[in-house]
Every structure is written in structure tokens, then in C-alpha cells.
């Protein structure tokens, strides 16, 4: 089957610092892939390269059979790449519902009236329905993280990029969020998930990718990756 997202030999440098070094991987339709790595390994940068918020220095990004290496973020969103931000970026003066409405109407080029009902359904799915008409600036951290997820879903994505969406949440909040993400995955949306909360990540993803200094240093089933010597040394910082 043709991969929904194909990254080949992607490079990115900030001056002397290499943040993406010949990164190559692909994502099958409906797959959930986890990305782990120490702080500064280039994980969020990789997302910014996939969404077009940053331009690659070299390599190719193919989405759904189309080369999007030089496409602007807006166009990639329309094609079906949805993302959440590590630090939530809500439209603070708009209500939660309006946040979704923007994403729905512009992310799929439809009229507000056509997407309103779907936005309402997503608010139920993500547990935000009780806050629907509250300005997003008044939300708590958990609610802001949920809003990131809900807004990305409203763009009707084929691939969903989640950036540390479980970070900073309590055990109970985290479990609830994982449940929501499982449901989204079960509905057929492919997921790439950057996360430090490993037990949450490993309960959803089928494959793990390890990034260090912009390089892919391991990829495979979560159990195998967590057991591998390279990961334990570099990522967990253990002397083995």
C-alpha cells in the first residue's frame, strides 16, 4: 500500500546546528507512529518541516502521492495534514467553538454552516462541549491541550501530528486524553505523536522512531526499541 506520508533524506540546519540529518521514514495509512528523543533532538522541528512552517534545506516530503516539499502550510493543511502545537496556540479572543469553526471552514474550504455540526461533534468527542462558548483564553492547560487536538481534528486531517500533547497533565487527565487519541486512531486517521510520557505513547503507537541530534537512530516496535542498547544509552541516559 502507498504510504500516506513519505519523508526522504530531509535536512535542516540552523547555522552550525544540524536539526534534521537525512531523516527518512514513511507512514502507512491508518498507522500510529511515536517519535521519542532527548530535548533538542529536532522532534518539533521535524513537525514544522512536515507542516511547512519551516522550509527544508534538502530532501523530499511526499504526502498522499503529491510532492509537498515546497508547498505553504495553508495548502498542506488543506491536503490533510493537521497539527497540534507543543505550546498551545489558541485563538484567545474567539470561543472554543469558534476556534474549531475557523479550522473547519478554512481547513476544508467549506461554509461555516456545513462544518458547524461536525465541530459540535468534535467538542463532544474531545470533552470540551461544556466550554463551547467560553473564550479560549480562559481555558486551563488540560483544556488548551484538548483544544489543540479538537482544532486539528476540525481541519478533517488524514494525518494528525501531535506534539507533546500529554506533557504537564496529571495521571488521570493523561489517561482520559489517551482514550480520546485511541478513538481518533480507531476512526482511521494516521497519527505521528511526539511524547515524553512513554507509557501513554506506547499504549497507542504501533511503531517508535528515535531521534537524536537530528538523526534517526532507531525505528521499530515499541518493546524492541525500549529494550535496545542505543536508546537506553542516549535517550534514557543510562550506563549499560
Amino acid at each position: 500500500m502507498q504510504p500516506v506520508l513519505d519523508i526522504s533524506a530531509v535536512n535542516k540546519r540552523f547555522g552550525a546546528l544540524t536539526v534534521a540529518d537525512a531523516v527518512t521514514f514513511s507512514l502507512a495509512p491508518g498507522e500510529a507512529l511515536g517519535i521519542i528523543g532527548p530535548n533538542g533532538a529536532g522532534k518539533s522541528t521535524l513537525f514544522n518541516l512536515i507542516t511547512g512552517n519551516l522550509q527544508v534545506d534538502g530532501g523530499r516530503i511526499v504526502f498522499d502521492g503529491t510532492d509537498v516539499t515546497n508547498a505553504p502550510p495553508m495548502q498542506r493543511c488543506l491536503m490533510g495534514i493537521g497539527r497540534t502545537f507543543q505550546i498551545p496556540q489558541p485563538f484567545v479572543k474567539l470561543t472554543v467553538f469558534e476556534n474549531l469553526l475557523v479550522a473547519g471552514t478554512f481547513g476544508s474550504r467549506k461554509l461555516e454552516a456545513e462544518v458547524a455540526a461536525r465541530c459540535g461533534d468534535i467538542l463532544i468527542q474531545t470533552g470540551l462541549i461544556g466550554r463551547a462558548n467560553v473564550p479560549a483564553g480562559q481555558l486551563s492547560l488540560l483544556e488548551r491541550k484538548r483544544l489543540e487536538l479538537a482544532r486539528a481534528l476540525a481541519t478533517n486531517p488524514k494525518v494528525l501530528l501531535l506534539d507533546e500533547i500529554a506533557g504537564g497533565l496529571t495521571e488521570g487527565e493523561c489517561a482520559a486524553l489517551v482514550g480520546t487519541i485511541r478513538d481518533i486512531h480507531a476512526s482511521g486517521i494516521s497519527i505521528i505523536w511526539i511524547e515524553h510520557v512513554l507509557h501513554a505513547l506506547n499504549s497507542v503507537v504501533e511503531r517508535l522512531l528515535v531521534l537524536d541530534f537530528g538523526k534517526v537512530i532507531g525505528m521499530g516496535r515499541p518493546n524492541d526499541i525500549m529494550a535496545s542498547k542505543a536508546v537506553r544509552e542516549i535517550y534514557l541516559g543510562l550506563d549499560v
Partner: peptide
């Protein structure tokens, strides 16, 4: 209108607005 909603989103956060398809 729809464009007005997009305008409000750009006002609040241009980067996020671009990521959800607003020109």
C-alpha cells in the same frame, strides 16, 4: 462572514491561523 472569522483568528495568532488553512 467566514473571512471575518479568519481575520479574527489571524489577529489572535497568525502562525496557528496559517496551520489551520487561513490565508
Amino acid at each position: 462572514t467566514r473571512q471575518g472569522l479568519g481575520l479574527s483568528a489571524v489577529r489572535d495568532n497568525q502562525e496557528a491561523a496559517r496551520s489551520v488553512g487561513v490565508d
